[in-house]
C-alpha cells in the first residue's frame, strides 16, 4: 500500500462516515412518492465535489455496503438490505454515480472553479443524473410509467436545489482552504 493509497482509503472512509453523521438529521418525507428528503443527498454532492470522481464514488460504495450489511445509517435509522428493494432503492444506488459525476465535473472545472460552476456540477450530478437513475427504478418496481414517476419526484427538486446551493458553497470554500483534488 503506498502512502497515497493509504490517504485515499482514509478519505473514502471519512466521507462514508460523514454520510452516516448527516443521516442523524431527521428526514422530511413529502407526500406522493414518499422518497424522503434527507441531509444525506448533500453528502453525496460533497463527497464527489471534495474528493473527486473516483474517491467520491468509492465512499458512496463503502457507505452503502455498511447500510446493506444491516447498520441503520440511512436517515431515520434505516438500514439493511431491505432499503435497496424499496421504491427509493434506485436513488441509493444512484448516489454512487451521482458522486462520480459531480466529482468528474468539478475536476474538469477545477482551474476555474467558482460558485456558479460548482452549483452546475452539483445540479448536474446530484440531481439530473441521480433522478435519471432513481426514477426508472420507481417506475419499474412500482409498475407506473416513467412520466408518472417523474411527476411524482418533482416535489423533491426544490429541496435538492437548496442542497446544491449549500454543497457548492462548501465545495468552493474547501477547495480554497484545504484542497484535496489536485488539478489534472
Amino acid at each position: 500500500m503506498t502512502n497515497d493509497t493509504t490517504r485515499d482509503i482514509v478519505l473514502i472512509a471519512l466521507f462514508a462516515a460523514i454520510m452516516a453523521v448527516l443521516g442523524v438529521f431527521p428526514p422530511i418525507t413529502l407526500p406522493l412518492i414518499g422518497v424522503p428528503i434527507t441531509a444525506q443527498s448533500l453528502g453525496v454532492m460533497l463527497a464527489g465535489g471534495i474528493l473527486g470522481a473516483r474517491r467520491g464514488a468509492l465512499s458512496m460504495v463503502l457507505f452503502l455496503v455498511l447500510v446493506a450489511v444491516g447498520l441503520p445509517l440511512l436517515s431515520g435509522g434505516r438500514g439493511g438490505f431491505a432499503v435497496f428493494l424499496g421504491p427509493s432503492g434506485g436513488f441509493l444506488v444512484g448516489w454512487i454515480v451521482a458522486a462520480f459525476v459531480v466529482g468528474l465535473t468539478i475536476e474538469r472545472l477545477w482551474p476555474r472553479l467558482g460558485h456558479v460552476n460548482a452549483f452546475i456540477a452539483c445540479v448536474f450530478g446530484g440531481i439530473i443524473v441521480l433522478y435519471a437513475i432513481g426514477i426508472p427504478w420507481i417506475a419499474f418496481a412500482a409498475e407506473i410509467s416513467i412520466a408518472q414517476a417523474f411527476v411524482g419526484s418533482m416535489p423533491f427538486v426544490p429541496g435538492d436545489l437548496i442542497k446544491a446551493v449549500i454543497a457548492s458553497a462548501v465545495i468552493v470554500t474547501v477547495a480554497r482552504s484545504y484542497p484535496v483534488i489536485t488539478s489534472p
Binding site: 472512509a13 471519512l14 452516516a20 463503502l62
Partner: peptide
C-alpha cells in the same frame, strides 16, 4: 476502509 469508517463516525 470498513474499520476506519466505523472509527470515523
Amino acid at each position: 476502509a470498513l474499520s476506519l469508517c466505523m472509527r470515523f463516525i
